[in-house]
């Protein structure tokens, strides 16, 4: 009975909040240092389609931070917190949807999971109504392990394997297991996140040269992603296993359940207007 009462109280708060909310959406990119994520990471077609789902489609922002850093770094979570707080303040946002891709989900989870770490985080936590996490790397990826193999810094020679970013280190499987168990909420056995965190899971990669679906988002990506599946299990988007994408929060849907033609979403396609993904998100926000 108590749980029911609590649920009623919570629902009432949510309804009251949504009825009077000034809603906005923030697009949060994945691994990499971005200065123009609108063009370089998302594409204008995707952003401009998704934001049409807002009551006022001008209430959006595309964040640009250095997600080559560890998620907690000032250049990562600190930068994101600054940009989100500026957006909230400048646009008087009271209900914020965070749309993340890949490692962007981990940076957002860091902020939501560590409210006492930084005084910039609480206002974001209080304003965020939900997180739509496109292919989040919640449990890391064996590809990050492969990318750092043998990547031992030798002080006398200084040899390094390329793409040696802290974000890639962080997304190694055993590293994310540690961070999930000690610093992040939302995975099994851990405290729940203070906002809904729902994942869109990419489950396969089409790379047949005769299949036009392979070309959405760029064919050259698909060939590489099919190769990387050698490090991944049978359900993956070419970069992340489905289990990792499903590892935090809840699964909103697995690609083929809602996409046009039941097409799978590769890791690059899950940030593009491929197979109606943009429309599905637009109708949800």
């Amino acid at each position: 009975m108590k749980k029911i009462m609590t649920a009623i109280v919570l629902s009432s708060f949510a309804l009251m909040a949504s009825a009077s909310a000034n809603q906005g959406i923030a697009f949060i990119h994945g691994t990499g240092q971005q200065t123009d994520a609108y063009n370089d990471y998302w594409s204008g077609d995707f952003v401009n389609s998704v934001r049409q789902g807002l009551p006022n489609s001008s209430k959006y922002t595309v964040t640009n931070c250095d997600f080559d850093q560890f998620m907690w770094a000032e250049a990562a979570a600190g930068c994101l917190a600054n940009q989100l707080n500026s957006f909230i303040a400048n646009e008087n946002i009271t209900s914020l949807v965070l749309l993340t891709h890949s490692n962007g989900g981990n940076v957002v989870r860091w902020i939501l999971s560590n409210p006492t770490y930084d005084s910039r985080y609480p206002s974001i936590i209080n304003t965020t109504s939900k997180v739509i996490a496109l292919a989040p790397s919640s449990l890391g990826t064996p590809l990050a392990d492969a990318a750092t193999q043998g990547n031992i810094f030798e002080s006398t020679l200084g040899w390094l394997l390329g793409y040696n970013s802290d974000a890639v280190k962080q997304q190694q499987v055993s590293w994310m297991a540690y961070y999930n168990d000690n610093w992040l909420s939302g995975t099994s056995g851990r405290p729940t996140l203070p906002s809904t965190f729902k994942a869109v899971v990419g489950s396969d990669v089409d790379s047949a040269i005769w299949d036009s679906d392979s070309y959405c988002g760029g064919y050259q990506y698909q060939v590489a992603l099919e190769t990387t599946q050698n490090w991944l299990d049978s359900c993956s988007d070419g970069f992340l296993e489905c289990s990792s994408q499903s590892g935090a929060g809840t699964v909103w849907f697995k690609d083929k359940e809602k996409t046009q033609g039941s097409e799978p979403l590769s890791h690059h396609q899950s940030r593009r207007d491929c197979f109606n993904l943009d429309t599905i998100i637009r109708n949800d926000i």
């Binding site: 590809l143 390329g162 793409y163 890639v168």
Partner: peptide
């Protein structure tokens, strides 16, 4: 059965200067 060039791998943004 499969050959992957540096250029193809680079598009995945994870294995630079690599082939397989």
């Amino acid at each position: 059965s499969q050959k992957v060039s540096q250029e193809q791998f680079a598009t995945a943004n994870i294995f630079p200067n690599s082939s397989a």
